[in-house]
Design a protein around this nucleic acid. Sequence first.
DNA 1: TAAAGACTGTAACTAAAGTCACACTTCTTG
DNA 2: CAAGAAGTGTGACTTTAGTTACAGTCTTTA
Lengths: 233, 233
Amino acid sequence: MLFMRQIEAALSLKIKTLHGNEYFNDLPEDLLKEIAAHTQLREYQRGEAFFWEGDPCHGLHIIEQGSAKIYRLSPQGRQYIVRVLQEGDTFAEVPAFDGGTNPVNVEALEACRVWVIEAEFLRRLVLAHPQFAQKILVNFGKMLRNMVHQVSEMAFYQVTHRLARLISELPQNDSQGRPVPRWTQEQLAARLGTVREVVARSLRELERGGAIRMEDHCIHIADPSALEQWAHP
Amino acid sequence: MLFMRQIEAALSLKIKTLHGNEYFNDLPEDLLKEIAAHTQLREYQRGEAFFWEGDPCHGLHIIEQGSAKIYRLSPQGRQYIVRVLQEGDTFAEVPAFDGGTNPVNVEALEACRVWVIEAEFLRRLVLAHPQFAQKILVNFGKMLRNMVHQVSEMAFYQVTHRLARLISELPQNDSQGRPVPRWTQEQLAARLGTVREVVARSLRELERGGAIRMEDHCIHIADPSALEQWAHP
DNA sequence: TAAAGACTGTAACTAAAGTCACACTTCTTG
DNA sequence: CAAGAAGTGTGACTTTAGTTACAGTCTTTA
């Protein structure tokens, strides 16, 4: 059994992190100090759950190090990955601000360090600092646009097209330029809302068409314009 | 060719409407008066577009009368209905608050009267009145939860199950208790992300199973628990 | 009220997605 | 380093979804 670990962190480190975050980067120094007092650093192992769907929400999360997946499970045990989180990404905004339970599961893909800012405190912050509220609002808008895109893509396109689009959008490196871990076929399938075998089939189809090339199980884009043809039919 | 019509509306009517809306119902009277000055009433015919995807946003919309659909179109011309709007519903919050273009198309299903509140003015309002911002935030959260649900339902369940769920959630009457217009098979299909013929097939399947009964093309729930079985497999 | 348009029902067929089975190849990790 | 776990490749098969086609019905509306 694995357990999340709470880490001691210096005030200065907390403030530095907040400074680097899109939500907090232009708030006054003394306010950051106050926020820092409601911020904790946590550590998770690969495969460990941050929280489960239906859990009460701990707070707003910011990934300091590592990566994670946001996903839902069907009653039959199938997984759908809503989003993959990289360093610097924030998540759990929705329950943090509406006070409801977590709508999704989140699990570490690699060992992770994560900042958690108390939800209750943030809701007070929103009421005191409207320009902060506005940033959250804009980000919620971005997420909603994204979701509308995701759901209509699922409705319109078949697996090979969605796979082509996913491949062409996969980041090769994280924000510090280090390579990100490659996706397994199982993960690609869960991201696309299908099963592993179908992804394998679609990969072969893209390879036969010359759009990609597999090299010891890594996907390389062989012909970007051919891939684009697949992605935008 | 049809054209949207701008309607003169008394200040008192505008204020009465704002009072009845979840976003504005607890703002002070003199502020409502100011908002009303930035609010217009518009009228649309059945089938007329409110706006198109990619258009700049006019403002926050509130349906005074009628119903409408929010949808996206595939390059092949397939339609996916993101949401159906009834009286009292608000929409276009996302572009109104993030200042971007409309992410979706909206079209009147019946003749509509719609209030439009200037986007530019609302963005100033958010900065001046944090409790207003918070309401928007909570509503954005509700929409995001909804979208996560929609996309994972699409990934997990097949058409007949999604159809069963849709049928069991279809409102029979609007907020004033008047019957809402029934959905065509084409519309059901667009809502579910499939095509008309498949919906027809699935309807027959649900009928053979005794969950529903068709009576001159209207869907009646014959056995609620059987329908639940289909909806939550 | 006749014609056009929108909607429904259904069958036959094709294509895409999902399931099952199993061999093979890495990676952990005791 | 050996054993197990996790991941991959692939073929055969079943099921579900999408396409095509066309007849019949109901509603507008000229």
